[in-house]
């Protein structure tokens, strides 16, 4: 077995740090290391933390990690920030909010740039989580980039997804739009000491009720009838789970116990059949992703620029439709 992988399994933090870089840099030997480590993964509970910029994700991760540490669990944190589309560089500043965790050998924090990936995570995030899992951490917290309405890759990486909201970011129609709120297992209203926090909590609860109706009896024209007994679950929430809304003030560590309990409840819910199902879905998405990437790379290699230029001219001269040109290019693969 490769030296670094052996060291990683023995708990060497620098070996972990170096392998993380190798994966990010797509070094050839990284695939081999991952193959060796794969049997050692599957033990950690993976928690995603996502939400709009400025809602307090890093502070919440800081407070959550402290909470897990007080329970005696070890924590790895993967904090993703955006790469500049212009220079390819990035400023990774999530550690600023995680000072409380420094000096604790039960915590490992790694900052990561998206490197051009658009779904709120980097392409290498999944594999980096795997390394941390193999290194033996009990809990892995993955903080996404400041996410808007469509950065939902996290749900296919994490087991429990926390969506962080803050007061004053939108009305109740924002809350029922499609997107990020649909992926929440736990919804956090952070900065709950700010004005408007209660409205945000109410809007979120009302939104959840539309999607997960609570069975209740109402009197309608004197008739007692039951409404909304069948919960409607979206495609992403297959486990028939009603998201929990938690209020926190992360910088003051308020509401963190309630948040930990909500995570516990979701984890307890996601056991047995449901967990197998969730894992299968995640792996299916990952395999298809990887297949797509590999096929695209093969395509790029096999496609000669002359052949492409030839096709372009034929389409330009109206001798060939774009559809037919693609068909011909594909058939040469």
């Amino acid at each position: 077995m490769d030296n670094l992988t052996t060291q990683l399994l023995a708990g060497n933090r620098r070996a972990l740090a170096r392998l993380l870089s190798q994966i990010e840099n797509q070094v050839e030997t990284a695939a081999e290391a991952l193959a060796q480590l794969h049997p050692h993964t599957g033990r950690a509970w993976i928690i995603g933390v996502t939400g709009a910029p400025g809602t307090g994700k890093s502070s919440l991760v800081n407070a959550l990690a402290q909470g897990f540490r007080q329970r005696g669990q070890t924590v790895a944190i993967l904090a993703v920030d955006p790469t500049s589309p212009f220079s390819g560089g990035a400023i990774l500043g999530d550690r600023i909010r995680m000072r409380d965790l420094s000096g604790d050998s039960g915590v490992f924090i790694r900052s990561m740039a998206t490197r051009g990936s658009l779904g709120g995570l980097a392409r290498a995030t999944r594999d980096c989580v795997r390394l941390m899992d193999a290194a033996g951490f009990d809990v892995i917290l993955v903080e996404t980039v400041g996410a808007g309405q469509s950065e939902i890759d996290i749900v296919r990486t994490a087991y429990t997804t926390i969506v962080v909201e803050a007061p004053g970011l939108g009305d109740d129609v924002q809350a029922i739009k499609a997107g990020i709120l649909e992926i929440a297992d736990v919804l956090v209203v952070n900065k709950a000491d700010r004005p408007g926090a209660q409205q945000t909590v109410r809007a979120l609860r009302a939104m959840l009720e539309l999607g997960h109706p609570v069975a209740r009896q109402v009197s309608h024209h004197g008739q007692l009838m039951t409404v909304g007994e069948a919960p409607v679950s979206s495609a992403l929430q297959v486990e028939d789970w009603s998201p929990i809304v938690v209020e926190t003030v992360a910088t003051e560590k308020k509401g963190i116990d309630a948040l930990l309990e909500a995570i516990d409840a979701h984890r307890a819910h996601l056991q047995g059949e449901a967990f197998v199902k969730r894992q299968r879905q995640n792996i299916e998405v990952e395999l298809l992703d990887r297949l797509q990437t590999a096929l695209l790379e093969r395509l790029n290699r096999s496609l000669s620029s002359e052949a492409l230029r030839d096709m372009i001219d034929q389409v330009r001269q109206r001798q060939l439709s774009p559809q037919a040109a693609v068909g011909m290019l594909l058939s040469r693969l």
Binding site: S87, G89, I91, G93, S111
Partner: peptide, 13 residues
């Protein structure tokens, strides 16, 4: 400046 030069900068404050 280093970000603009295409580097990843971990800024710790």
């Amino acid at each position: 400046a280093l970000r603009d030069a295409g580097m990843e900068v971990i800024y710790t404050g």
